[in-house]
Design a protein around this nucleic acid. Sequence first.
DNA 1: CTCTCTACCTCACCATGTGATGTAGAGGAT
DNA 2: ATCCTCTACATCACATGGTGAGGTAGAGAG
Lengths: 111, 111
Amino acid sequence: MDRSQLLKGTTELLILGVLKDGELYGYEIAQRIRDRSGAFIDPGEGWLYPALHRLETRGALQASWRAGRIGPRRRYYKITDAGLTAFDAQSAEWAQFARSVRLVTAGGADG
Amino acid sequence: MDRSQLLKGTTELLILGVLKDGELYGYEIAQRIRDRSGAFIDPGEGWLYPALHRLETRGALQASWRAGRIGPRRRYYKITDAGLTAFDAQSAEWAQFARSVRLVTAGGADG
DNA sequence: CTCTCTACCTCACCATGTGATGTAGAGGAT
DNA sequence: ATCCTCTACATCACATGGTGAGGTAGAGAG
């Protein structure tokens, strides 16, 4: 199994998960995910930015450009009410899926 | 999130998970997964058979044709030592990934 | 004026799950 | 006999979305 494939379907959950605790910009979101996961999940920019755009388009996130003191401008993302709702739904879905995997792989009688 | 995407990368783990408890044929594997997951995971034939072939090719499974009392012949799959090793590895990987998702989405200080 | 760091963005490619469709054997109904 | 249905295995076109590489741009250092 490519670990890579595991990410599919969880990237938006991860993003919403860090943004529900406060406004962050893209780069920072990546760092936060990496830190919280103990570096096990290392967000690639190839999926991070597209995912942020998807979420913004759907109204789960609200974004605004702001200048940092150094370096280029940053795009800050803030979770919306719709985003929080989406987070809850995806979180529940994930929990049930994870439970299912555990049940299937735990084996036989007392699974 | 399409729930569908969550399956990516876990299908082989699921298959190995049910086969480590005994020899089964394809259709039966699907039923077993569906049953154990409380019908939350409903294996599609479109991924089940290809995945079985992949696992067989890699030596994780050993297969043999056998006639059923009714209906068409069945292909029984048995997990090999390599398969058990793969199961352990994928299981551990999954556990760590699931833990990571939990850590990232659980939020702030006390993760 | 070039190098490097931060920060954002996009694209070709690839793995793989989805849904539809096909092949067959066996038993039951007409 | 013919058709239908259930079991059982298999394959294919298509869609999703992550991977890795490459590109743009601002700001400070040499």
